[in-house]
Write a protein that binds this DNA or RNA. Structure first.
Lengths: 165, 165
DNA sequence: CCGTATCCTGATAGATACTG
DNA sequence: CAGTATCTATCAGGATACGG
């Protein structure tokens, strides 16, 4: 039902050593997530982000700067007929790797939060089969918390934590 | 490279219909995520949450109430020798289903944010094989954004959105 | 030890207004 | 249309203090 942990039982476990904290830090806040989501939906233009996220323009502007400096989004100039060059926004490959995060959130939200029909469906392009986020190890898939163990990555001497700050 | 979307191209896409927004709303904030993470690590007692997340007690308290009302965490009374009954905190099954979300975040953070060695390793208990979060459809695995299509789940009349709010 | 109420500060979002 | 600066309101988070 929970991770077998050598972890929770041993001393302090500081948030600053955890990726979750860093991710939340880097991606910042709710609006950043919404913006990234929109990127996945194919949105590239500033005002579209504003419209489709329902977030104010200044907030989008700020989010973009955060995402840019986090290496999640890049500005890609584009040019419409008779307009001057503008910036479009696109996910970097790092940004695209956020797909599991977003999808996992959507999946969870659709399951536990939405009352009515799920607002969107994600399917594999060719087969049309529903896409799912899975936790797996190599061949084995659909692991739950009970199947998973958390380890420290072989600290030099595991005995009494001498080298650890 | 991005979702084929009928979506981004069509009218307004409001944040309030999206699960991401709801999830962010329900789970609230950075500390809630850290608390949930700790739950996965097996932490159950209030002060342990405080210590191991590095978050202040009031913030943990608030987070717990949010998580409780979101159905992610339940209080489970426990009793130590010579102490009175206290509340422990445990993930519900809904809470446990957040595993992919957390793991995906950790994975991304370890890849793109952490400078040194990844702080923690997740392995399958028996085989010791590293656990990964994957996006897949049935047999097909490791899909990327390019393989995925977003659809509306057959709204009654797709033409002009009459029945929609 | 466990947990919450209160108060205060800093971050974040919206409204408005302004530039190209 | 595409952004950003400013200003203000709101909210999350820490310190402190207090009750079980």
């Amino acid at each position: 039902m929970k991770f077998e942990n050598r972890l929770a039982d041993r001393g302090r476990w500081r948030a600053d050593r955890c990726s979750i904290a860093s991710v939340l830090e880097a991606l910042g806040t709710r609006t950043t997530f919404l913006v990234v989501r929109e990127c996945f939906y194919g949105t590239t233009r500033f005002d579209d982000f504003v419209d489709r996220t329902g977030v104010s323009a200044p907030a989008v502007s700020r989010a973009m700067r955060m995402l840019e400096s986090a290496g999640v989004v890049v500005r890609v100039p584009y040019q419409d007929e008779g307009s001057r060059v503008r910036d479009g926004y696109q996910l970097t490959s790092a940004g695209e790797d956020l797909l599991p995060v977003l999808l996992a959130m959507i999946q969870w939200g659709d399951t536990y939060l939405q009352e009515a029909t799920p607002p969107l469906v994600f399917v594999e392009r060719n087969s049309g089969r529903p896409v799912k986020v899975r936790v797996s190890a190599d061949g084995l898939d659909d692991l739950g918390p009970a199947d998973i163990e958390v380890r420290r990555p072989v600290p030099r001497d595991l005995g009494q934590q001498t080298t650890r700050s």
